[in-house]
Amino acid sequence: MTHAALLVLADGRFPAGGHAHSGGAEAAVKAGRISCAADLEDFCRGRLHTAGLVAGALAAAAALGLDPRELDAAADARTPSPALRLAARRLGRQLLRAARASWPCPELDGIARSFPKGAHQPVVLGLAARAAGLGPAEAAYCALYESVSGPATATVRLLSLDPFDATGVLARLAPELDAVARTAVDAAGRAAAEGLQALPAASGPLLEIMAEAHASWPARLFAS
């Protein structure tokens, strides 16, 4: 295993389409729920323990080698908002392109054939981690970090928030991210032994509701 591959996969510049998505931050900013770094921290904490945890467990399970089709269905079942399901599949397709170019292998080619319109991004992330020689823990870390770094970067653009404050938020969340990663990896291990119902199904209802509203805005900076 190479640990350095994790840096490549987790790099914010990895060309997988994430830059056009705010992880719900744009809707939250417009609703007045994020207006400063402290709000951003609350928002990211909420995301980490809900959408982040689910994404982390799905990624870890995919990295363990669980059936991608079943994992994709499990992701669907855990994503009530059609707009978010669409965004997750688009991002999954874009990530798959970058992953196939970076770590070419028959398994990723097979996923491209099975999911021409994309599989859920966390599932693809786990498979990409696997192709890069990484394990379930690294896959979970990647998914969890993305779940908070996306909104943080977007908020810097949306509010002209001081970028040092936004980065400070991410740094302060790191110990919590460690804990959630352990939970996600444990759940993936149980899912391998007992079935996918062991995967967490935590949800942030406001994230889902706001995503639906956001998708209908006539003018917006981010795709989701």
Partner: peptide, 9 residues
């Protein structure tokens, strides 16, 4: 330029 994935799609 830097992340062309959405345009390629």
């Amino acid at each position: 330029r830097d992340d062309i994935s959405a345009n390629l799609e």
